[in-house]
Design a binder for these strands. Structure first.
Lengths: 337, 337
DNA sequence: GTGAAAGCGCTAACAA
DNA sequence: TTGTTAGCGCTTTCAC
């Protein structure tokens, strides 16, 4: 069943059917009605691959994420999918699992399916895989790499203001010894966040202590491991910032398991504000990263690059806001234990 | 850059290039090598839409899920994506958000993109949306609808054995008053599970009490609401089964908020075994639904239908296993109000 | 306002 | 073993 069949049934040519479907204004209303009726009756669906072949563009945006198991990403995907579909486009999702082989493969999938652009939320240190995308003139929007180029835009998370909010909050509670549990070492996003943390610390006149800065893995296990180390110091932090909520939740578990109470002995602040953070005990104070805004920023950036193939990429910005719940409180007066 | 370009560079015809790419054995090894070299050099990616157009099949399987925010689904998607990609196919994911308009739209997306089959994990009561799929001879594999037909297979979750395990476990703890919090009313999956619950109850000689059977929404909120009702009865259940883990977690929260302790006052059993269930307090006893097996069952069923277009659909089965953690314990000896 | 026809890139039947 | 060619379904220019 193709447009020619519809054309025959409606007594017109396939060109007219095409025009009706694409909503061209050049067709007489009666003709439109007649064609529409036939389309309805036989439940005709145009074959997208023909259009893609003809145009060289598929109307699909690729989305590459590291770990769909981290609740932040499903929430993001949901928003991104909604925006994409609402704009009559399609989404092609790929997961890398933090694995560079899977990353290569994902990019290959994008290229083969002729996506109109790629939103890359899994920034690895290696830029090599991007090359193929750039070389094939596929618009690319990265997250928090702070680097733009021709056909390459970036959506940055405003770490500075977020960190400032978090640290100001802790300062009001008189915390002086503040730790940080980062993401995986070597990923640019996590490096950026560590740096932002150190600078923000200095801004509130606290001298950063290297031993208070630990690396995690963006998962609960990483938070558990890092927090266990932090709390076994004789001179331990009274507050800890985590690179994401999962890490923070792991940190909370570790602290509680070691007999510390939250927030009386240690305050903990997460990052993302996943749904779960409101459910754990105590509910987690966290820097909320607004998914919808973020998804919209990616989509807009992609559209812009697609429609302006020779334009320089743009640097976008999404702000976080501090959501104060119950995992933060006044610094302990004296050492307990 | 297309196959003709490669052909020219390699001094062969485009047909030969095609043969090399598809791994035909008819090409002389030296020719293969020469063509491969050119492909490597210019980093050529075949245009999938041309193949799709030619074949009428896209090498893509659709996956329709209700709610990517429920942690079970990301875990499932991850497995399904891995299997699909490993088999050199593609996955097209769509979320319905339990909304029938989104369902229609998702199916439309599948049809337009010429998917080779659809895995439908969001079974609504209405069969109407499927019609388009069936009519267009798109293989369809549903979850737990227990109905097969031409080009329609089903993967059932063995509710019977799961329920039996759960109830036997509770019986050993001398529970007599057992409640159930289902999914959304009207969805066939949840109806099936309620029925399975009632039958399993009878099998251990407990007379089901209608007021102990509540409806939820597959989310935490539903569990909270239903559990609050269940526990406000004078004569309240001492154990509750939930339709999924999120519901069970909501139930736990409600119970704890009302001052009941788990499992001393009420035992709770979930369903799915999402990662979170091991993290909540107390860790949740639950019926584990193995994602990888489930994903594999869907994939195999799809492949089978695709390769045997005129075959009758098959009924597959996936078994659950009871994971005993700390949310279940002996029934309270006497009323603790 | 509508139709005819070329061509997007690939594959497979057929020819050589 | 390799090449030639028709055609998958759609869009769009050009002609009417």
């Amino acid at each position: 069943m193709d447009m020619r069949d519809i054309a025959k049934l409606a007594g017109v040519s396939s060109a007219t059917v095409s025009r009706v479907i694409s909503g061209s204004s050049l067709v007489r209303p009666e003709t439109v009605a007649r064609v529409r009726k036939v389309i309805e009756e036989v439940k005709f669906f145009p074959n997208n691959s023909a259009t893609t072949l003809k145009y060289g563009r598929s109307g699909t945006y690729g989305l590459i994420i590291p770990d769909i198991t981290n609740p932040f990403f499903p929430e993001f995907i949901k928003c991104f999918e909604a925006i994409v579909v609402e704009n009559d486009k399609e989404m092609l999702m790929a997961t890398t699992d933090f694995h560079s082989g899977r990353m290569q493969q994902s990019i290959r999938r994008m290229l083969i399916r002729k996506v109109d652009g790629v939103a890359l939320l899994a920034s690895e240190i290696e830029t090599e895989p991007f090359e193929d995308l750039i070389q094939n003139r596929v618009p690319l929007v990265t997250m928090d790499r702070g680097h733009t180029a021709n056909g390459l835009s970036d959506v940055a998370i405003n770490n500075k203001s977020g960190m400032d909010q978090a640290l100001r909050h802790l300062k009001e509670f008189r915390h002086k010894k503040i730790g940080y549990i980062g993401g995986s070492a070597g990923l640019t996003i996590s490096d950026h966040r560590v740096e932002a943390f150190i600078r923000a610390l200095k801004r509130i006149d606290i001298v950063p202590r290297p031993q208070f800065i630990k690396v995690g893995n963006y998962r609960i296990t990483g938070g558990v491991a890092a927090m266990t180390e932090l709390l076994s110091f004789e001179d331990r932090p009274t507050a800890v910032l985590a690179a994401n909520d999962l890490t923070a939740i792991g940190a909370m578990r570790a602290a509680m398991k070691m007999g510390f109470s939250i927030p009386d002995d240690v305050s903990i602040i997460g990052f993302d504000d996943i749904e779960m953070s409101d459910i754990v005990h105590p509910p987690l104070t966290t820097l909320r990263l607004p998914r919808f805004e973020l998804a919209k920023a990616f989509f807009d950036a992609l559209e812009h690059l697609k429609n302006n193939p020779h334009a320089q990429g743009e640097q976008h910005n999404v702000k976080t806001t501090l959501v104060v719940r119950e995992s933060t409180g006044p610094a302990p007066k004296r050492r307990s234990k």
